[in-house]
Nucleic acid binder design. Sequence first.
DNA 1: ACACCGTTG
DNA 2: CGCGACAACGGTGTA
Length: 882
Amino acid sequence: MDKRLIIIDGNSIINRAFYALPEMNNKEGLKTNAIYGFTTMLFKIIDIYKPTHISVAFDRKTPTFRHIEFKEYKAGRKKMPDELRVQFEPLKELLDNFKINRLEIDGFEADDIIGTVSKRAEENGYKVYIVTGDKDAIQLASDNTTTLITKKGVGEVEEYDFNSVMEKYEMTPTQFIDLKGLMGDKSDNIPGVPGIGEKTGIKLIKEYSSIENLIENTDKLKGSVKTKIEENKELAVMSKRLATIIRDVPIEINLEDLVFGDYNKDDILENFRHLGFTSLLSRVLELDGGEDVIEEKTNLNISKLENIDEFINTVNSKGKLILKSVRKQGNILSKNILYLFVSVDGENIYYINEEDIARFEGVLSSVEIKKYGYNMKEDYIALRAYNIKLENMNFDITIAEYLIDSASATSYECSALAMKYLTKKMKSEEELLGKGVKAKKYQDLEFEELSEYISDIVYTVKNVSPKMEKSLNETSMDGLFYHVEMPLVEVLGNMEYEGMKVDRDKLNELGIEFKEIINTLEKEIYELSGEPFNINSPKQLGVVLFEKLELPVIKKTKTGYSTNAEVLDKLRDKHPIIDKITEYRQIVKLNSTYVEGLLAIINPISNRIHSSFNQTITTTGRISSTEPNLQNIPVRMEMGRKIRKVFIADEGHELVDADYSQVELRVLAHMSGDENMIDAFNHDEDIHTKTASQVFNVPIDEVTSDIRSAAKAVNFGIVYGISDFALSEDLHIPVKQAKEYIENYLDKYHKIKEFMDNTIESATEHGYVTTLLNRRRYIPEIKSSNFMERNRGKRFAMNAPIQGSAADIIKIAMVNVYKKMEECELKSKLILQVHDELIVEAIDAEIEIVKRIVKEEMENAVAMDVHLDVDLNVGSSWYETK
DNA sequence: ACACCGTTG
DNA sequence: CGCGACAACGGTGTA
């Protein structure tokens, strides 16, 4: 077989990669962009050139013979940035995983090693490919040696062999050395002949073929060129020597040591996971061209469950079940399960048709049998329509992965988890169904197609869950997982299934009311501006305000004038149109997002709104709500607040609304252990008034509302990871004053300062921060070399434990409220959570007990040095619960 | 697909 | 030195 050697200039490629790619970090904050670029380049050339041998040459830090001959050699080079320097060692380790030979030797550059090895290889009948970003290596090109010069960072290469060099430059590869001897090289600080540039250089080399020959024939030269050459003969010769790549470096090389292919895939995979190169994992599998390895189907045994009773016995004796329901598209409340797939051993899968599901209820609703799955809330909801309560959801791989890395860029999709944990390729849901309007529904799939997909999911659940469990244990998140997040799946499933009742007529009325106001405002605005235009277009609005009406430009966006509320507020006094626009914006928002948006999504069966609650979205541990988002229904402005009148309790019910008072500041007081703030809370003082009194040094009863709201802003700022600038913007005060406020604050609450400092320090050291329940958020930004990024990282570090602990607390409360209501066999339902607020739709007879349970469970969710305080309100609409 | 804007905690 | 609050979702306009 032909032997093909690839030899890479390590320093050159890592440099190119570093400067071509944006900053990247693994989750511990290690810089990885240059390693990543190097690795993608490596895969690419392996792919194209299919080498039998590979070697990477590196420079050493020690001076080379060139420095000794010419001390100015490579002088004036910029120092290597630390962000790049730190990537060398990990890259070398990775090369070791690939079992790729590395070559370096004192006194010579990587170039010289490459020159030597390529010569030797060529003599032994190899085809050689040299990979570098440095055009100097073109001199090594020959019939059997191709120099590959990277382009566009490291993404592409240009090939140079003897013929292509001749064709392109009308010179032999070795004549490049002569050319450089004349021209010099700025980046290496090789002088060359002063005054001779590329053009003249090429002309001379073409005519005289080498520097030596040129020098012998200077009498044939004319004019200034002649004097330049004659006066700089030695310089030219030395420059040529500096530019000449050495081809007989005293280095011991056995070419057979450079054989490529002895790598251990598992080592590489493990290192890739460590480096965060999840997108490259599949490339490792493909390394030896093993298409079959990747495409290998799980192909577990899938068959219709014939003997249901026997299987039920097996499940009961094993005490566990992997399951996945597949649903037709349709109403959340309808019975529309196509198949329920179940497996005990993760190897034999059975499917149950809709009509047999009832026979399986005993197993599904048994609290003895642990259920394993993927996106189990879907299964829970799907079964609810059959009046089956899926009990003991014990392990959902999506939820587990969310805890393992909530800030991960990759999705929690099964296919991604299969790749990450098992290095197994499987179809993603999008690959299965297609995307966009043409996307298929599950009911459109061939059974074969579907069963392959389900087989992969079952296989993944089975094999990933033990690894995840280990990881949860190691990070002390098993408690959070088993006692909070997993039980919460059922709570959220019920919230979605129950939904919230809306008054459609009332919503329509509001819509009419809003539209009338919009029409009037529209006319007034056109009147004031002198022309009709699309007020909703920031672009057109910008033109009207800042060009036509010539109002002062306050702020610009990337694309033009900023017209946001803050800017408009500053322009209020300048023109009567501004207030109209502000009002217009407000009402249009209410109408389109809330009136139209909500109307479109009322469930025709229940006349209720069934929002989706997502447990794996936020980086801090909060829940999010979509379709519709019920967590941002207006409340601050009266006009918007009216929307809450349409969220009502069913007949014979009331809404019991309970919200935590200052939960985040209480968490902060507890976590920091600041006696001053703990004391304030435990004496039930108004925290903002107290803060005002302490920070501004005024007696409590002299705190004005202005001072109080300033203190409130500072309290907020602290939670967000404060900066003097932002606070000054918020309070419209000078930065200097804002700075004083903060200093005063941190002085009075000195343990809060300590807490913040410690948190940042710990985040920098470990790469993550934790909440009360050990929920983790990785913060790679905190190690960024970019000032702005790093500061963001610090703010994340300060905020995440506070916001995240508050999220922990309300999640515990939700689980406990739900359990308690169930225990008491109440008919009332928990239907909504808005970060620090829970809403129960309580049947009239149960209102008092619900109030008691909710308050009790929320206030006692966790034991802290600060007690938790819950405000309760009852009303027949959300509007009234204030 | 992305930018801008506005709504909530 | 540098910029600038934390966490979400959805509608509209524009390229």
